[in-house]
Nucleic acid binder design. Structure first.
Lengths: 339, 339
DNA sequence: ATAATTTGCTAAAACGATTTATTAATTAGT
DNA sequence: ACTAATTAATAAATCGTTTTAGCAAATTAT
């Protein structure tokens, strides 16, 4: 019952031409290779008739091109990454590429395992959110001249292509927005990971409060802390800093923890506190109060990533390293307006 | 500078043995094929030394196994699907499989294009949320004896493996919960797609209100309506049905639309109305009021899917069709409790 | 009429593995 | 001492493409 898959060989023998001829025709090299109009038509017609589709595996083996790219993020179930994934997917499929998505949980071991895995599979290119300690592995990819783009964060001293947003500018603006709306004691809740994106976000906040001579109130939560512990830390922080009238959460899971703590422990604060979060979520819009967010330009990020990738895939040699910095946008909602 | 990738041939010639011998050893058939202990050790040592990894493409071409499975959902950026994807990813990678995720937007054309695409790539198995009109395509996969599991919904008259939840039971319970909490006029907001999951959800609701002799108040929103139009429809519905004291949203994007409409147009209703939504989201917990949700057992669904898939991949012949129905869980939060 | 080109097509190698069939060298059996 | 069985290894076919190198026939040039 199993339907027969056709191969070039089948076509060739059915039409009494050579495999070479068929291959040339399929690959649009008929004219260039001087295959007669007559034969070309015959073959194309037959291909159409039996609905022949080349075996991609064989093609890949021969050409060394798998037509697969890797998109590695922290956690594909996270809203921000999932949105990116979807946009990348659409562009890639349109261009004839398939995408292997994977999550590294921002862990070096996972990142390295995954990269090793993909190498055996002759993946054509990598778009990666690197965990902090895989500079070596990234450098290897670089040395092997494999198409590679980092995004969201990067390594200062590694000449890689990357696409990031101007995190400092983003938090600077957002913090200023809070200041303009009369918030005086703005806390910045972030993690302790020393990656470029987080450092820039912190630095933007510091710049803003510094310029206005306000107090820096920073809470760094250990990256590996479990949700319960993170919440406990935030709760303590709120108790110990009663002067705080606004909170800037540097990443979305912290926002979630923070709001949860406030809702449980200090419900009256929810409408009083100024709140801004980094990375938007559709649901923030329908929160009560709706939550202001720094939104990354998802389409633009993905568009840039993919057009860079396609360029890299075309000609692998002597390409200049491209560093792209895009701008985030502050979505002002109720939570950051005067109360 | 490009690092040389090693092939079996390289190993063979470096050690003065045949390619066959090396292959046997790599595949653990040394004893079975009577390769001497001595040669085996030598080869293994060398493989380890140069860190040889077989070329998966070549392997796949020869064996017909790509070690790739497809996971097709409506939209990978949707929270529910993204969560599933992540869990599937973890299980698959652990078992040596890679996953091609893709989104069909519940459109037949996309689904069919994607499936056609993957066939050329010799994908080993498919886990699919089918759009409503691809019964034919699914049947073809079935006839070709390709490992296939549908989930979330299925075709009544097609003997496919599937994993779904008991939607009827879920909405029946959830509706009863509203009734027990004194809500009398419970609206059910759903879409007009005639797929098994949506029909069952509706039927569970109808059963519940029927048993208690309450009014059926059902709003079916065209699946293809744009968010703006969906909201307009919901708004009209609210205006025209002032008796409604609770709303059951049959799927998560409708919840979003609904809350948005309520927040904008009828803010006082938000705390008065009973609300339940289908499919949970971490953020619902920290909403004000927190939103009660019917939560599907994600881990269980994915675990079942993958163990079924691995079984299918092992021995392709004469397998019984498996139909698994799991139970959802009602997460009771503020929105469905008495006011 | 002969040499040089052009046209139309193809044989065969290659990609990197797996697997079947076979060979050569030992060892065991009688 | 001669056959049978076992051990150790390998040559070659295969998966389905792409691509290089080349051949024969037809055409053009001289």
């Amino acid at each position: 019952m199993k339907k027969q898959r056709h191969s070039i060989k089948d076509i060739a023998s059915a039409l009494n031409v050579s495999v070479t001829t068929v291959s040339f025709i399929i690959n649009g090299k008929a004219k260039e290779k001087r295959i007669s109009e007559k034969v070309t038509k015959k073959v194309l017609a037959y291909i159409d008739e039996i609905n022949y589709k080349p075996n991609q595996l064989a093609q890949s083996l021969r050409t060394g091109q798998s037509k697969i790219i890797v998109f590695m993020v922290e956690d594909i179930s996270n809203y921000f990454f999932a949105r990116l994934a979807r946009i990348i997917e659409d562009i890639a499929y349109e261009k004839g590429y398939k995408v292997l998505f994977c999550s590294n949980d921002n862990e070096d071991k996972k990142s390295e395992e995954l990269i090793a895995l993909f190498k055996d599979r002759q993946v054509d290119g990598y778009i990666i959110i690197p965990s902090s300690g895989i500079k070596g592995t990234i450098k290897n990819l670089l040395d092997e001249n494999i198409p590679l783009i980092l995004f969201d964060r990067y390594f200062e001293d590694l000449p890689t292509n990357y696409v990031v947003i101007d995190n400092e500018e983003a938090t600077l603006n957002a913090t200023n927005h809070l200041i303009e709306n009369k918030f005086k004691n703005i806390a910045f809740v972030t993690t302790d990971v020393e990656q470029t994106q987080m450092l820039s976000r912190l630095s933007g906040y510091k710049k803003a409060v510094g310029q206005k001579q306000l107090h820096e109130i920073v809470l760094k939560i250990p990256y590996n802390a479990k949700p319960v512990n993170r919440k406990a830390i935030i709760k303590d922080f709120i108790i110990n800093n009663p002067e705080v009238d606004a909170v800037f959460f540097a990443t979305n899971y912290l926002t979630q923890d923070g709001i949860s703590v406030i809702k449980e422990g200090f419900p009256s604060l929810l409408s009083k506190l100024g709140i801004i979060t980094f990375d938007d979520n559709t649901l923030y819009e329908i929160f009560t109060p709706s939550i202001s967010a720094v939104a990354q330009p998802l389409e633009e990020i993905c568009g840039t990533l993919m057009s860079m990738m396609l360029k890299l895939l075309k000609k692998k040699e002597d390409q200049k390293v491209e560093k792209v910095v895009l701008n985030a946008k502050l979505l002002v909602r109720e939570s950051s307006l005067p109360k």
